[in-house]
Design a protein around this nucleic acid. Structure first.
Lengths: 248, 248
DNA sequence: ATTCTTGTGAACGTTAGCGTGCATTAACGG
DNA sequence: CCGTTAATGCACGCTAACGTTCACAAGAAT
C-alpha cells in the first residue's frame, strides 16, 4: 500500500463538501489524504475502527465472503459517502471487509478527531446521518436489483455507479473485479461487457474501461440506478428535516 | 383494516423495551395499539409520514415493486425494530410501500409525539439509531444472501425470522406471501416448503405454518440467518457507544 | 528477446429457478 | 348444504447463469 500522502488535491467527497466551512476546515486540518490502489484492504471485518475514510475518487466495496470462495459486494462507497458510518450509529468495529475496487484517492480521519468534530459541529452529524439514510436506500435497491434483474443490467448499473465516482470517462477495473463485486462468474461479466462494447456504449482493454455513450448506457440500465442516484443527489441538496413529500 | 384498539397487551417491541422507564411511559401514553392483518398496507411509497409503527408481534415488509408485477421484500421488520426510521435520519416520507406479511399487533405513534420524545429523552434517539445500524446490517446480509444462496436456504431463513417475531410456534403465512417476499414463484416456495415438511422441521396447511423442529431448521439455513440474529441480539444488550471489539 | 503474468474470449455440458397452466382440496359465506 | 374462493401440489418445456477448461494476447519482468 502506497503511504505517500498527497499535498495538493481537490476535496471531492460530498459529505465533506456539505459541511459548513468551519467544520470542513477543522476536519481538513486533521485528515491524511493519499491514493488508494485497486485491491487494497481498507478494513478487515470485525476490526475496531481507527479511522473514517472519505473517498474523493474511486470506489470502495464492502465485501461479503462466502464459504466456497464466492464473494459479493454488500455496498459500494464513493465520493457521495464515507466509510465508518457504523461508528456513528453506535458501534466500535467495522461491519465488513472493505477493499478498493476502483483506484483513486481518499482522506483518513482518526476516530478521535471524528468524535471531536461530531461534538463541536452539528452539521457533521447531520451530514453523516443523511448519508446513512441514503445508504439504507442504496442497500434496499440493491436487495431488489440483485434479486430481480439480469446480469447485464446489473453490470451496467455497476459501471454507471463507478463512472459517477471518478473524474473523466475512464474507470480502472477488470472483469474479474466486477465479477467479484456482483457475485458472478467472469464469463458472465465478459458476455455482458462484450454486448455493451458492441453496442458502442463502452470500450475496454486490460482493466481500462472507457465510457463512450453514457446516455445509451442509461437507457439499458434498470431503474434501480436512477433511484439510487436520485437519493444521493437529493442528499446533496437536502437540508435536514424540512423536505417536502418528494422523498422518493 | 380493523380499527379496534387493544386495551390489554404486552409491550413486546424491543426498541420500546430498551427505553428508560420514563421515556417508555411517555410513549406508552400516546400510542394507539391495534391488530395488524395480513395484507394491510401500512404506508404507501412516498407518502409523508404520519406515524412511526412499533410491531409487537407479526412481520412488516418493505416491498419493492417491479414493472412486470414481480415483487421482493427489501427489508422486514418485527418486534426488534420499527417502521419510520427514515424520519429519524432526516426525511419526511416513507421510503417504500410497507405491508403486513404476518399478522399480529403493533403500536402507532404520531410523528409529532415521536419528535417530542426524541427531544425529551436521549435514550429514544439512541435506541433508534442502534436499530438503524442493525437494519443496515440486515440489509447487507440480505444483499449477499439473495445473490448467493439457494431458494430453499432463503425460504428457511425467512421462516426462521418470522418465527422469531411471533409468540409460540405458529406463523400465519401463505406460500404465495413468501413467494412475493422472496421474489420467487410460488412453485419454487412450494418445493422448498415441501422438502422442509418432509424433513420433519415444519408442517403447514392453508396459511398456517407450524414449527416442529427448530434446531433442524437452523442446521439447514445459511449463516446469514445467524449473523442477522446476532446483530439484533447485540442491539438489545448494547448500551450505546461503549461496546468492545466484538461488534460482529 | 524471452519468459511470465494478467486480462480477455470462448467453448463445453449442467442446473436452478422461471413462466405457465391445471388439478385438488380445505375453508368460508350464504 | 353447496357453490365459491383461496391455498396447495405438480408437471411441462425453457433459459439464464453456472462451473470448468482452454486458448490467446498484451504488458511487465528478466
Amino acid at each position: 500500500m502506497n503511504i505517500k500522502t498527497l499535498d495538493n488535491y481537490k476535496i471531492q467527497n460530498e459529505v465533506l463538501r456539505a459541511l459548513r466551512p468551519e467544520a470542513q476546515e477543522f476536519i481538513q486540518a486533521r485528515v491524511l489524504t493519499r491514493p488508494i490502489h485497486a485491491g487494497d484492504v481498507i478494513f478487515e471485518d470485525g476490526v475496531p475502527f481507527t479511522h473514517a475514510v472519505f473517498p474523493h475518487e474511486g470506489v470502495l466495496s464492502l465485501m461479503a465472503q462466502e464459504e466456497h470462495g464466492r464473494t459479493v459486494e454488500k455496498a459500494s462507497i464513493g465520493r457521495e459517502g464515507f466509510l465508518g458510518f457504523a461508528f456513528l450509529l453506535g458501534g466500535g468495529s467495522a461491519i465488513s471487509r472493505s477493499i478498493v475496487q476502483v483506484p483513486g484517492y481518499a482522506s483518513w480521519l482518526a476516530i478521535r478527531d471524528l468524535d471531536e468534530a461530531l461534538e463541536q459541529y452539528e452539521c457533521v452529524r447531520q451530514a453523516m446521518l443523511l448519508y446513512a439514510k441514503s445508504l439504507i436506500s442504496q442497500l434496499m435497491e440493491s436487495v431488489a436489483c440483485n434479486t430481480l434483474h439480469s446480469a447485464e443490467q446489473r453490470v451496467t448499473r455497476w459501471l454507471l455507479h463507478a463512472h459517477d465516482r471518478v473524474d473523466g470517462d475512464v474507470v480502472m477495473v477488470t472483469q474479474q473485479a466486477i465479477a467479484n463485486a456482483l457475485g458472478m462468474r467472469r464469463a458472465t461479466i465478459n458476455e455482458a461487457c462484450s454486448n455493451l462494447q458492441q453496442a458502442g456504449t463502452i470500450s475496454y482493454s486490460r482493466g481500462i474501461v472507457n465510457f463512450i455513450d453514457r446516455p445509451a448506457l442509461e437507457e439499458r440500465v434498470c431503474q434501480c440506478y436512477g433511484r439510487i442516484r436520485f437519493r444521493f443527489k437529493w442528499q446533496e441538496v437536502g437540508t435536514g428535516h424540512s423536505e417536502a413529500a418528494t422523498d422518493r
